[in-house]
Amino acid sequence: MDYINAFWVGGLICALAQILLDKTKLMPGRIMVILVCTGAVLSAFRVYDGFADFAGAGATVPLIGFGHLLYQGVRDAVDESGLLGLFMGGLTASATGISAALIFGYLASLIFRPKMKD
């Protein structure tokens, strides 16, 4: 069951983003930014918790999940260390994703050469 929910929820988010991609002149980078900010907002309004339980990876794998992760990190850190937590929580919670992308991305630049499209 969790696979089915992950599939249709994750797929639906992508399909909705496709509307933005096709119907507006928004560049892909902007859509990514919009998704992350949307995730943070949804998370702040507490919409996300039940949603993530229901959809599993369908809610966390899309970039809105990244926004959720950031906000959740900030909130937990605020609970723990107050004002300072505002500046700690976000990047701590998202550290794996960001570090992995940067490190693997860098390593890829050592191994792979740019390739022509055909």
Binding site: P28, F112, P114, K115, M116, K117
Partner: peptide, 16 residues
């Protein structure tokens, strides 16, 4: 093609 993509659009390996 590649120099123009790089100059005006995206890196070649970027998915779009």
């Amino acid at each position: 093609f590649a120099s123009a993509e790089k100059e005006f659009r995206f890196p070649l390996a970027y998915g779009s």
